[in-house]
Write a protein that binds this DNA or RNA. Structure first.
Lengths: 204, 204
DNA sequence: CTTGACATGTGACAACCTGTCATGTATGAT
DNA sequence: ATCATACATGACAGGTTGTCACATGTCAAG
């Protein structure tokens, strides 16, 4: 947690520091992030930085927090966009995020840069995705689906959100075109919906 | 790639260096790995290290490569263990890896430590999992299943392998017990098999 | 043997990094 | 005007990496 001193800072100074930090985190993997470069970017002396943040992880945690709300908003919007139908949510989320990316490219490039460069370090645990998935499950409308136990709902949404995350990451890392990545996500959704069933004797 | 000099090293020396590196990578996140500690552990002078490896990433890549084959073996064994039935493979893999972990704890703790501490940095791209998944798809026996296009097969196995990976990681990070993690993986498998279907008018 | 060409070993070094801390400065209450 | 508290600051110790000039092996040809 940043110190109270940081929050008492005049907003322009605070934001300048934050921006310098975001840029640096987006450009290099965590281990190579240099506080020196950050304070140069923010034009504050070294000592001041440590007045505001305990260390690099403290700053990193704080930076990521800032994106958590954004992601939650996107998820809630996509829940709405597909009328609460749970299986459609991850695809809607994919579209929404990609649209957002195109409009706010600079912003998102930073965010994805941070995720890409640091995922695994801590990012996974810092973004409170698991909680968000639970929230979505509770708010989604499951009535149109054949009955699923709570465990099964969790399983389905876990699979789909994880797939959506991979799909977005693949686009950002330029491993796949956005169309191809969307197509694959759609196939995954469809397969989960239809099921990969073992053959049975005809029963009707 | 390590230099040829490295490969010309007398095996004991080479392995001592490698072991020191593995231990260090397993103990700290990539950015905090200290070449100083590695060369102290291996009892070689600093200059020698740079005669063998271009830098830290070069060493890291090489270390990870060593585990790639191990993983491939495990996957192929699990393919066999479940008689080629594709949907069972990830569960079999989960069991196999967990058994292996219990028997070769020291080895695997290192491996998982490396993955956990560095995943996202590069590990995902270094382990050639995507290729392995393709191989499994080709070798599995899809005849028992209702027809799936090639794309759909890829989608299914992608979902399941990703789920298996998460399941193992959850156990290792002690976020879940091995039983609970296996249970969730089994549910995911079952859901994918059965499908999360929208209700239809009765058709028979 | 001796020479020389080449592969390998070596540690001092510059240049960078982080987190601390003693000291200086502002600000607001009394 | 005094004082306490909050804040600003850069020099510093101790760590890091990658390089490089030089020392030492090794091996084939004269």
């Amino acid at each position: 947690m940043p110190t109270s001193t940081f929050f008492n800072l005049p907003p322009p100074k605070r934001e300048k520091l934050l921006h310098a930090a975001i840029v640096e985190f987006a450009r290099r993997p965590y281990g190579e992030v240099s506080i020196n470069r950050i304070i140069q970017g923010a034009e504050i002396p070294r000592g001041s930085f440590y007045q505001y943040f305990a260390d690099k992880t403290d700053l990193f945690r704080y930076v990521l927090r800032g994106y958590d709300n954004m992601l939650e908003t996107a998820i809630m919007k996509s829940l709405e966009a597909c009328g609460g139908r749970p299986l459609e949510i991850p695809l809607a989320l994919y579209d929404l995020v990609l649209d957002y990316i195109r409009e706010n490219w600079a912003q998102f490039e930073l965010f994805m840069g941070i995720l890409q460069k640091n995922m695994g370090m801590d990012a996974g645990q810092l973004l409170s995705l698991p909680e968000m998935v639970l929230k979505v499950i509770n708010q989604a409308d499951w009535r149109g689906l054949e009955h699923l136990e709570a465990d099964e709902r969790l399983a389905v949404m876990d699979l789909l959100f994880s797939a959506a995350g991979h799909a977005l990451m693949a686009v950002f890392c330029e491993k796949l075109s956005s169309e191809e990545s969307r197509r694959r996500l759609a196939i995954k959704t469809a397969v989960i919906q239809r099921g990969a069933r073992y053959k049975e004797e005809p029963s009707c």
